[in-house]
């Protein structure tokens, strides 16, 4: 069973997990992210909202250096994870990505069995001492992904045979199997139907107990439902960042107000 209520849960919500300072991102000649400063708290859900092309996904991918895989992408400024600069030369991006997991827009299970999908990360990083150990990790991760009951009888069936919502929860289970500290989610529900979306949202709310979750979403209702903090991006700028309730009820910037009331987007 997953240990949902831990002592530290309610005590310290204000500790900063990730802090970005003057972050600039360029794709070739395009200035995609302009001077973004943001502090993301641990053990909470932070939502990035904004119209298409505003740079929210780009910024999300900076946090685990997935943009390194794109040749023309350049990142300037500092992103600190627990006070350490992740763009420092000493940091191995591969190690970083084990600490900062990622769930993608489209469910992307590997063409392997459900078990092998979840065991993939632990195997690569050598997290399991034995076969039995690995079994435990897989079960725990699948439970955290809230999909254990649905797949426990067919762990060796291919992961690609699951439904879209199940695949996405499998991908979340796969991401938490490496024991990350931060979980980045890039529009995790945009390819799912409303029921699967509700299941994933419920899961995100539970994950908050253990991880910092950063979620990019197009749905303002979703941001309002799952997040504690919300950041609004527009044309590469971070326009407004604050408590979700404040952003949605009492936005300070008129662009934010226009967006959440549906006038721009």
């Amino acid at each position: 069973m997953f240990d949902a209520q831990r002592p530290g849960d309610t005590v310290d919500q204000k500790e900063t997990k990730i802090s970005a300072r003057n972050v600039q991102v360029y794709y070739g000649d395009t200035h995609a992210i302009k001077d973004v400063n943001v502090d993301i708290e641990s053990k909470s859900v932070t939502a990035f909202i904004g119209p298409s092309g505003c740079g929210k996904s780009t910024f999300l991918r900076c946090i685990n250096r997935m943009n390194d895989t794109i040749d023309i992408c350049r990142v300037q400024g500092d992103i600190l994870l627990d006070g350490e600069d992740i763009y420092d030369k000493k940091v191995d991006p591969v190690q970083l990505r084990a600490k900062v997991g990622m769930v993608f827009q489209k469910p992307n299970p590997f063409p392997k069995s459900i078990y092998d999908n979840v065991a993939y990360g632990p195997r690569i990083h050598g997290l399991a001492r034995s076969r039995a150990d690995l079994d435990v990790i897989v079960e725990k991760s699948l439970r955290r992904g809230a999909i254990w009951d649905e797949v426990k009888d067919r762990l060796h069936a291919p992961g690609t045979g699951l439904s879209g919502g199940q695949q996405q929860r499998l991908c979340i289970a796969r991401a938490v199997a490496t024991e990350p500290e931060v979980l980045l989610m890039d529009e995790p529900c945009s390819a799912l139907d409303p029921i699967a979306t509700a299941q994933v949202e419920e899961l995100i709310d539970e994950l908050r107990n253990q991880y910092s979750v950063v979620i990019v979403t197009h749905s303002m209702q979703q941001a309002a439902r799952v997040s504690q903090k919300t950041a609004f991006f527009h044309l590469g700028n971070l326009v407004e960042y604050g408590d979700t309730s404040q952003i949605f009820t009492n936005p300070k910037d008129e662009r934010t107000e226009s967006y959440i009331t549906g006038r721009i987007g």
């Binding site: 997935m66 895989t69 990505r97 992307n108 590997f110 993939y120 690569i124 490496t178």
Partner: peptide, 15 residues
């Protein structure tokens, strides 16, 4: 092979 599968693996910290 879809790029999304590569991203999934790289995102888990695989080289």
């Amino acid at each position: 092979v879809p790029q999304s599968i590569r991203d999934g693996s790289l995102g888990l910290g695989a080289t």
